[in-house]
Amino acid sequence: MQISRNMIGTVVVGGALTLTVSALAYPSMLGLDAVSTSGDRLIANTQWGPFTESDRAFVVAVRAAGLWEHPVGLIGLQKGQSKEVRTASQHLVDGHAALDETCRKIAPLLNVTLPNIASPQQEGFVTTLKTAQGKQFDVDFANILRMTHGSIFNTVAKVRSTTKNTLVRTLADQANDTVLDHITVMEKTGLVDFDTTLFTQTTPPKLPKSDMTPPVPPAGQPLVVLPPPPNATSTPADLGPAMNGLPAGGS
């Protein structure tokens, strides 16, 4: 069964399929009165290199992605009808637990406030998949997750190719590997409708900024931790080289 373009359009209303970095920044937390339309605006010169609005927004975007995809992976492990969907679900939980740990490690070093709840659109995806049953769950799961990962993939590449901050670069390296892995396992389900997915991925709906922004957590609220599975194969990034200003894997 193939998911229709109308079906995806309905899902889009309940949850965004794209993450725009400019909409995910928390300017007030760093004392900025206004956000430049350019993500290149400098926030701070750190010991790990210049830190820009795009850098900060990327760290928040990685965190927000895990806050809805990790729970969806847990849902898929319970509701997935096919072995391929359950395997993809395992990859979601495994990959985002490791990615989130890296994100939580670098955020305080860069003075980034992380959300504890995903954006309203992303929460809409979770609601959609909680409601779907049987084979329809598998179809919705594969297409929604393929679409969202395809949308963020270009953003990861752009950040990786332009950031001057070694901590952000390390996070982007890990995010690139994780997102590509998740794209691959979604495609291996055999359920992805590529025409519809790519159409929606390249022509996203225009939604209000409030729907695309994860809420700022109350002051002092502990960070939600995304636990790794018992048989985890993904590991957080080694920040040692980045802390010394070296490329990931450098010596």
Rank of each mutant, 00 (worst) to 15 (best):
S234M: 10
D181L: 12
P50N: 01
I106Q: 14
T163G: 11
Q90H: 07
L129W: 04
E187G: 12
R86T: 07
G134F: 12
N154C: 05
A34C: 12
A172C: 11
N45P: 00
P241I: 09
M29W: 02
V185Y: 02
V126I: 12
S89H: 00
A157S: 12
G15L: 09
A219E: 14
Q47D: 14
P208C: 02
L74S: 11
G250T: 00
V139G: 00
R146H: 15
V62R: 01
L246R: 13
F58I: 08
N244R: 12
G66W: 09
S210E: 15
T235Q: 14
D138R: 02
R56A: 06
T170G: 03
Q122K: 12
Q136M: 14
L145M: 15
Q2E: 08
P50S: 00
G9D: 13
T128L: 05
L42G: 09
M7G: 10
K130P: 00
T52H: 10
V216D: 04
P205T: 06
P205N: 04
F51P: 06
A44Q: 10
S151N: 11
I106C: 13
F125P: 01
L74A: 09
R146A: 15
K105M: 08
V21C: 00
A57G: 11
T148W: 08
D238K: 03
V35N: 00
L180Q: 07
M243C: 11
K130W: 01
V59S: 05
R104G: 13
T155K: 13
P222R: 04
F153Y: 14
A242F: 05
I75Q: 07
E53R: 09
A237V: 03
R63C: 12
I8P: 02
S36Y: 02
